[in-house]
Design a protein around this nucleic acid. Structure first.
Lengths: 122, 122
DNA sequence: ATATGTGCAAACTCTTTGCATGGAG
DNA sequence: CTCCATGCAAAGAGTTTGCACATAT
């Protein structure tokens, strides 16, 4: 991750303009509007490298495909639209959510996913 | 799903004895203790058929592999152990969790996943 | 000038499907 | 005896890797 290439700038731009978790395929589509020759393998390699660096994090939502989003955002959760399959950020968090763990289980993190229809699809 | 075969009885038994979400590979391992000739394709076909019938439901937790569990259980959530990668049921649910959705989003379901170490690994 | 990054295509892994055989009814 | 279900192996889908060429530094 030493060089600043057109492809990497394009992928960074896509995430900064978008602010939602994205699948590799979605990144490819948006990235090709900036660098048409962009290849899927480069997308996979680049998001993995960004995740290793800590600039992106993996977000695993139902649907089978791993999504990525910018890491340095406040704690938040996700909404997955059943109609358009887009993921959205939810800035809030119910503080007490980790209290439901059974006795003896050590909790070090949590994920909340809401399902339904987004504003555009509702 | 008309015939009651050794393989189907074995897979049903595995779920009833286990009471946790299982991956196809875990089902295969446990099922082969009952029917050694059991094949992975049969596991995939059978859990899909059980899910269609409504006896099983798909559970999608981080890790990439779809898991399955018995459907007719009260609403609950899941704990995923970072050490042994086993999934556990959490019988409780914070009632207010769907309130965090932004304005205009129609929520029709939710999933909560806690991460950490299970009783056995803690 | 040098070595990292890219794009293509082949390799891999996980899941699904086709087909001949086995077994439930 | 019939036809559904199984097991194997091949085919698909999504992701990763090897290699020669392009390009940032």
């Amino acid at each position: 991750m030493q060089r600043d290439t057109r492809q990497r700038r394009a992928i960074r731009r896509v995430f900064m303009d978008c602010g939602r978790p994205l699948t590799p395929e979605q990144i490819l589509q948006a990235g090709q509007d900036i660098v048409p020759s962009l290849g899927l393998a480069t997308v996979y390699r680049t998001v993995k490298a960004f995740a290793l660096e800590g600039w992106l994090v993996e977000v695993e939502l139902p649907g089978g495909t791993l999504r990525y989003e910018i890491a340095e955002r406040p704690h938040h959760h996700h909404f997955l639209c059943r109609s358009c399959d887009q993921a959205f950020d939810i800035p809030q968090c119910p503080e007490t959510v980790e209290d439901i763990a059974p006795e003896g289980f050590e909790v070090d993190g949590h994920e909340i996913i809401l399902f339904g229809r987004c504003v555009a699809c509702a």
